[in-house]
Amino acid sequence: MATTRPWHSPVITGAGRGLGRAHALAFAAEGARVVVNDLGVGRDGRPETDGADPARAVVREIRERGGHAVAHHGDITTDQGAASLLDTALDTYGGLDTLVNNAGFLRDRMLVNLAEDDWDAVIAVHLKGHFLPLKHAAAHWRARHRAGRTPVARVVNTSSGAGLLGSVGQSCYTAAKAGILGLTLVAAAELARYGVAVNAIAPAARTRMTEQTFATAMAVPNDPDAFDAMAPENVSPLVVWLGSAACTACTGRVFEAEAGRITVMDGWRRGPTEDRAARRTPAEAGRTATRLLARAPAPLPPYGTR
């Protein structure tokens, strides 16, 4: 698919399993030289004891298919780890065109049972884990622009339906994923002058993070010829396109991607409004709000309430 080339090296966080792995393989299939980042932790972000190295496993898989990839095991929730991620791309392949922020894990609890440490850990991996790689990549691209070599650079952030609508039992995950949407909008506005497009996806697919919640809906079909609607590979083509030079005049947008469906999300838009040049009493404000609510469409319900 020549329209998506060229890349120096897409950098993909959390690329050892699930969606990240599917993205890495899809980019490599297009001829990209991929930096595969993964700490190799469990579904809850805690260390695994089986000695697995998913980043190296994906690198090996790419190389066995004739592609180019390198593993990175740094912690992208730390400034040093995020900086070394970008250095790996520059030192190994001499360039950086695409950053796919994907890393994450879950520590689900109802709000009243959620520990502060679990909140901090989930916010760190999802939100801070987007911010730090993006900050270092943006600094690199800004320096190139100032040197007269404006890049054609792309960032793909990973939000979630939880970030768009909320999800019962996932307050910290929802808050982080909603924050990623805000970060995407700001980064798109700030980095456009440097040749950088920043977009986000809200994917739904079968991964370690979703297999317990959506076990029935996300089961692999018994018929090997049937379309596996929840395979993570269904999301990756959109990510590859968003991460390529072929993606033009598109920044600051959010796409839902699930099975064979791609949706451009509208985001927050002003709905019914009443304005007057005077301060309202609380009772007047209440009457105004009630009239406006009657004219507004009902919001979509959070996941877990349907």
Rank of each mutant, 00 (worst) to 15 (best):
A231Q: 08
D228H: 04
E233Y: 00
F255W: 05
A226P: 07
A231T: 12
D228E: 11
A249F: 10
V254Y: 03
C250E: 11
C250F: 01
A246Y: 01
A226L: 01
G243S: 05
A226N: 03
A245G: 12
T251N: 08
S244G: 04
E258N: 08
A231I: 11
D225E: 11
D223P: 04
L238C: 00
T251M: 05
G252D: 04
A257D: 03
D225V: 03
S244E: 01
G252H: 08
V239D: 10
C247A: 15
T248Q: 14
A231P: 14
V240D: 06
D225I: 08
V220Y: 03
E233A: 14
D225Q: 08
A217P: 12
D228C: 02
A257M: 03
S244W: 01
F255C: 06
A226R: 01
S236N: 03
A245M: 07
A245K: 01
A229R: 04
A219E: 14
L242E: 04
C247W: 02
V235A: 14
E256P: 06
A217D: 15
T248K: 12
F255Q: 03
A219P: 09
A231W: 01
P237F: 02
A217W: 02
A226S: 06
F227A: 15
C247R: 10
D223R: 07
V235T: 10
N222L: 15
N234V: 13
V240A: 07
G252S: 11
A245R: 05
P232V: 05
L242T: 04
L242Y: 00
D228R: 00
A217Y: 06
F227Y: 13
C247I: 04
A229V: 13
V240M: 06
A246D: 01
P237D: 02
V254L: 11
D225C: 07
F255G: 12
M230L: 10
L238I: 00
T216F: 02
E233H: 06
S244V: 03
N222K: 09
L242V: 06
A245C: 09
G243T: 06
R253D: 15
F255N: 03
A219M: 07
N234F: 11
V220L: 14
D223K: 02
M218E: 14
P224A: 08
P224I: 05
